[in-house]
């Protein structure tokens, strides 16, 4: 008996990507492609309606994601992904708004926007790909560069303390904070699915190799070696206090879901306040007719 083999003709993630733009510009071994892959698989898994989804990116290597995803996407100015996304969410609250950007864009140039969005608890889903460096501009020291990594602007090694992104975001008021690496693909996909169902400001930090600038300049081998390092030195600790999850150069990495709590989001607080004050005169804010 000869069985007929039904070969799936396309990669399952292709419907979510603009394949006419492939191959993408990311370097061989760059982890951003893997995170996009996980994001697309999370969209398949969560059965999210692509018509109700908008992806906003800033500038940088990760900022290119918006251009490669085949959903409504928006490539904004440097550091301003969160303000654009906030406007999008307030104008059309039924949209699921995902901010997909890098550490330099979200936490350095757009740092203030991020902490205020977290404080107000605007319903944004933020995926921050952290490669420890400003990669697109040539590998300068970023606020996430660990001591004593060498970068183009720190030839003798960086001597600034690095940001602890989950700690910062939790302190500012985020409702969901998790960290994974590009090695933890299944966990990352599950985390994105969970985040898409959550209400309020959510952040997932994804550690990613930058083989061209960070790993090469620090003689840490190629992307594959970095992935093996993630595999060996990552410890999953769900609910770990975020003050203890700071990163050191080539040290242990605490991964997991650190924060999962509920707080009224911005639109909810606004509606409640205005309804209280205006009573019958309140016609509803942020509700599309």
């Amino acid at each position: 008996m000869t069985a007929v083999v039904e070969t799936p003709v396309i990669n399952p993630v292709e419907p979510f990507l603009r394949m006419d733009r492939m191959p993408h510009i990311w370097c061989p071994g760059c982890g951003i492609g893997t995170t996009v892959n996980c994001f697309a698989r999370a969209l398949i898994e969560s059965k999210a309606d692509p018509e109700k989804l908008a992806v906003v990116s800033g500038i940088g290597c990760t900022g290119r994601v918006a251009g490669y995803l085949h959903v409504d996407s928006f490539h904004t100015t440097h550091g301003r992904a969160i303000p654009f996304a906030t406007g999008l969410k307030l104008a059309n609250p039924s949209l699921q708004v995902v901010v997909y950007s890098g550490d330099g864009d979200l936490f350095a140039i757009g740092g203030n926007h991020l902490i205020h969005a977290a404080r107000r608890n605007i319903d944004l889903k933020v995926i921050c790909v952290n490669n420890f460096i400003y990669a697109m501009t040539g590998g300068q020291t970023a606020p996430t560069t660990p001591e004593p990594a060498t970068t183009t602007t720190a030839p003798y090694g960086s001597y600034e303390p690095a940001f602890n992104l989950p700690y910062l975001t939790e302190s500012a008021g985020a409702t969901y904070v998790a960290r994974w690496t590009t090695y933890h693909v299944r966990q990352l996909t599950r985390s994105i699915v969970e985040m898409l169902q959550k209400k309020g400001f959510c952040l997932i930090e994804v550690l990613s190799p930058c083989p061209t600038l960070y790993q090469r300049r620090n003689r840490l081998g190629d992307a594959l070696e970095t992935m093996k390092y993630y595999k060996e030195r990552s410890k999953t600790r769900h609910g770990a206090p975020t003050s203890e999850v700071g990163l050191t150069m080539q040290g242990d990495i605490v991964v997991g879901k650190f924060v999962d709590r509920d707080r009224p989001d911005y639109l909810e607080s606004m509606r409640r306040r205005l309804a209280e004050q205006l009573g019958d005169k309140f016609a509803g804010v942020g509700v599309l007719a």
Binding site: P12, P23, G29, G31, G33, V36, V185
Partner: peptide, 13 residues
């Protein structure tokens, strides 16, 4: 499909 989910270039599944 672990190869497919790891691939940064969507080249395998």
């Amino acid at each position: 499909d672990l190869c497919g989910i790891y691939c940064p270039d969507f080249a395998i599944f």
